[in-house]
């Protein structure tokens, strides 16, 4: 019964599986429909919790239709649902009816990363003293590896994703009407304590962070980039986003 049951749940148009039984041997379609409904609705609800700004941008009806498509094409592969929706942004990119909102997929990327940041590991951060000691030894700095906290994530977008996201937060001083939607933004997420913080950074600063996370030493990471390094390092240290400084021997 189980294989057929699973198969019928995954195919919206399928009949209910054989071998189901009602107490009076009556029709079971309605009852199987309860399971069908639990499956799709509970997962659409989960996506709506994970992507509230995407939902606000599209409206609830559109969002739930979009999420329903996603659930059937990408059902979860793990019972840990806080990590569901990893491919939702890519799915939106390819979802024809969402083309009118070209920034939607990046907002989904940002929200997915926001939740990853929220739940990521707590780490011991590098102190400002440790960092400034290194900054005073240029030769060591060149060869230093800077480790970024797992909670620290960033996103480079062709759209104003950070401003769009901020405009949807309670008590925000940004309104969506004021946002120039197609102005590129690079957004940095940190979690210094319990709350996720969102910062807008220069696009080259995002590339620098990409390279650091790939394991480049400082001199390799900064090569050819133009951005305010002091201001980025300030954010990283204040936000407990630097967890290691090691100098290659």
């Amino acid at each position: 019964m189980q294989a057929e049951f699973a198969d019928a749940l995954l195919r919206r148009q399928a009949n209910e599986p054989d071998h189901l039984k009602r107490w009076d041997d009556g029709a079971t379609a309605h009852r199987f429909g309860v399971y069908r409904n639990n499956f799709s609705v509970s997962l659409i609800d989960a996506l709506q919790d994970i992507f509230p700004v995407v939902c606000a941008l599209t409206g609830v009806d559109f969002f739930r239709a979009l999420a329903r498509e996603y659930v059937y094409q990408h059902p979860p592969n793990s019972p840990v649902l806080v990590f569901y929706g990893e491919q939702f942004a890519d799915f939106i990119d390819a979802f024809e009816p969402a083309r009118a909102l070209p920034y939607l997929a990046d907002v989904a990327r940002l929200e997915r990363r926001w939740l990853n940041t929220y739940h990521s590991a707590d780490c011991q951060a590098v102190s400002i003293e440790q960092l400034s000691a290194l900054l005073h030894q240029p030769q060591q700095l060149e060869q230093a590896k800077l480790t970024i906290a797992p909670a620290c994530q960033w996103l480079a977008s062709d759209y104003a994703v950070g401003s769009i996201w901020r405009a949807h937060q309670p008590n925000s001083d940004v309104t969506l009407q004021d946002v120039v939607l197609n102005r590129a933004e690079t957004v940095l997420l940190t979690r210094p304590a319990l709350e996720v913080q969102l910062h807008t950074i220069e696009s080259d600063a995002g590339i620098f962070l990409d390279r650091l996370r790939q394991g480049c030493v400082f001199s390799e990471a900064i090569e050819g980039l133009e951005f305010n390094l002091v201001s980025l390092l300030q954010i990283l240290v204040q936000q407990s986003a630097l967890t290691g400084l090691s100098v290659a021997k």
Binding site: Q2, F5, A6, F39, S42, L43, P75, P76, P79, L81
Partner: peptide
């Protein structure tokens, strides 16, 4: 769960 899909039910 069945064949790698988690049904959340």
């Amino acid at each position: 769960s069945h064949q790698g899909v988690y049904f959340n039910d």
